[in-house]
């Protein structure tokens, strides 16, 4: 048992139980209530320390099934990958990169517990018997949520989400290659402004390709966009751009990345999708 923050988390669900649940959901394509929390769990898995806030995130009543199922797939995939990986996936220099994630490293004890900290239930009862009955997943309690502090998503969180994307042609991450930089991420209105959490916010990411005529700039931009679309709540609008003068055809690339229709069509291209999936493999 691990206590976190105000001791709100009391028990852990085993990873096996979680996997069973996710598999059931995916196989039956069911939009059971617990799945509404899955988006949050995805994020929780990628950012354990955000669990508290994310758990309080209530998806819109009309959250598309596609999103929910995608989240289920993502979590399952990461969990399985995590099981396969050796225990030491450390990448050189990664410690020099800005991240809030490092602070959590001490909490990781070993393969068995590696996602315990994100898989806690607030209710003891939730730990039992929901492998078969999806409806018994601990529900997101309204009254509990009200007590949780709303912690805004900030630039560092965005950075954490995208800096771990792999470069399509180098064995490094975009953070390591300084393709994405914390100073080039902006959120408007600023997260420190205590605005309505449901209000639209715009995330601007300026990408610095490694060379000015990098032909893969569009792919990198697309990966960043996809990553953020999957991870951020729907009220976040994304502007992914090439940093000014960093790319020979930056106007063209920017326009493509801004075009929702082109992005949607590109994601239906299996070849491109394969490249993107590979790049996003390293996102944890």
């Amino acid at each position: 048992m691990i206590r976190y923050r105000n001791g709100l988390w009391q028990s852990a669900l085993s990873s096996k139980v979680i996997k069973n649940h996710l598999t059931t959901c995916i196989n039956t394509k069911s939009i059971c209530k617990p799945i509404t929390a899955l988006r949050a769990y995805t994020k929780a898995y990628t950012r354990p320390e955000r669990y508290l806030r994310l758990y309080s995130y209530r998806p819109a009543p009309n959250e598309p099934t596609r999103h929910r199922l995608h989240c289920a797939h993502t979590i399952l995939f990461r969990m399985e990958r995590s099981d396969l990986d050796n225990a030491n996936p450390t990448i050189l220099n990664v410690s020099q990169l800005p991240s809030r994630r490092q602070k959590q490293s001490a909490a990781r004890k070993g393969p068995e517990n590696r996602y315990d900290d994100v898989l806690f239930s607030k209710k003891q009862s939730g730990a039992y018997g929901f492998g078969n009955r999806v409806s018994s997943w601990p529900s997101s309690d309204e009254e509990d949520d009200a007590d949780l502090p709303e912690e805004p998503i900030d630039e560092l969180e965005i950075y954490d989400l995208i800096s771990s994307i792999s470069d399509p042609e180098h064995p490094h991450t975009l953070g390591q290659l300084s393709v994405v930089n914390l100073s080039d991420i902006h959120i408007t209105p600023s997260p420190s402004e205590n605005a309505d959490p449901e209000a639209l916010r715009t995330v601007t990411v300026d990408i610095t390709p490694t060379i000015t005529h990098c032909s893969l700039a569009t792919v990198i931009g697309l990966a960043v966009r996809v990553r953020l679309e999957q991870a951020l709540p729907p009220n976040y609008r994304l502007d992914i751009r090439m940093k000014k003068d960093s790319h020979a055809q930056d106007d063209q690339v920017n326009k493509q990345l801004k075009d929702k229709e082109r992005v949607a069509a590109a994601l239906e291209n299996d070849t491109l999708r394969g490249v993107l999936d590979k790049m996003l493999l390293t996102c944890v």
Partner: peptide, 8 residues
């Protein structure tokens, strides 16, 4: 405003 909630 927000005719479809947070969605486009």
């Amino acid at each position: 405003a927000n005719g479809h909630g947070a969605y486009e």
